[in-house]
């Protein structure tokens, strides 16, 4: 509202508008002394808030949320794919491990069979060799025993002959009679048998 100052000079009236008062008045409208009601919503606040919210809601509905959600969905999908790949790789690795273990078991079984066969062959060969060695030892022992028996028989017969000669000479010297060869031989044999029996 403008203020005006009216001045009457004689029959004329001079009117001056007070612009400073008008400015102060308009300023007081911008800054009300009482302030707004704490309960009743002000139209200007309602309009600005509604506009701001509607803009935000529309942006969120058509731009902001779809863009973010698309990225989230893509990442979750990629993570799920990664999990699926990891599961597949794990399963393949498990199959490989099982196959490897089967191969190792097969090789181990084959190795054991070969070791067992070699062991059996070795055992048989050892027994054969042992039998051969035992046979050779037995033959040699028999031969040695025969040789020893022959030597002993020869020694014994020599001893018997010597003992017969000695006995015959002793009897001849003591009795003056020469004993018969058969008597001397029997006596020597009997005494040698008695000596061997002790």
């Amino acid at each position: 509202m403008l203020s005006a100052v009216a001045t009457q000079t004689g029959r004329s009236i001079q009117i001056e508008f007070d612009h400073f008062a008008a400015e102060a008045e308009s300023h007081s409208e911008v800054e009300p002394k009482d302030g707004p009601s704490p309960i009743v919503p002000e139209i200007k606040e309602l309009a600005w808030s509604a506009g701001a919210f509607i803009v935000f809601a529309v942006l969120m509905r058509f731009v902001l949320y779809p863009r973010l959600k698309q990225g989230m969905a893509a990442r979750y999908s990629s993570i799920r794919d990664g999990h699926a790949n990891a599961d597949a790789i794990r399963a393949a690795a498990k199959a490989d491990v099982a196959s490897y273990e089967a191969q190792v078991a097969s090789v181990k079984a084959e190795a054991n069979a070969r070791i067992e066969a070699a062991r059996r062959t070795l055992e048989e060969e050892r027994e054969v060799r042992l039998a051969e060695a035992n046979a050779r030892i037995a033959a040699r022992r028999e031969s040695a025993r025969a040789d020893a028996e022959a030597v002993r028989s020869a020694g014994l017969s020599e001893l018997e002959s010597a003992a017969g000669d000695v006995t015959e000479r002793l009897v001849e010297l003591s009795t003056g009679l020469r004993p018969t060869e058969s008597v001397v031989s029997e006596a020597v044999s009997a005494s040698m048998l008695e000596g061997a029996g002790r």
Partner: peptide, 29 residues
Amino acid sequence: TFNKIALIACEATLIGTVVFLVAGAADWR
């Protein structure tokens, strides 16, 4: 017609929009 409440409402829209725009622009991988 533009007071602190209007300013805060506009600022809320601006901040929310900028945050989600920046978030949406980040590498999702």
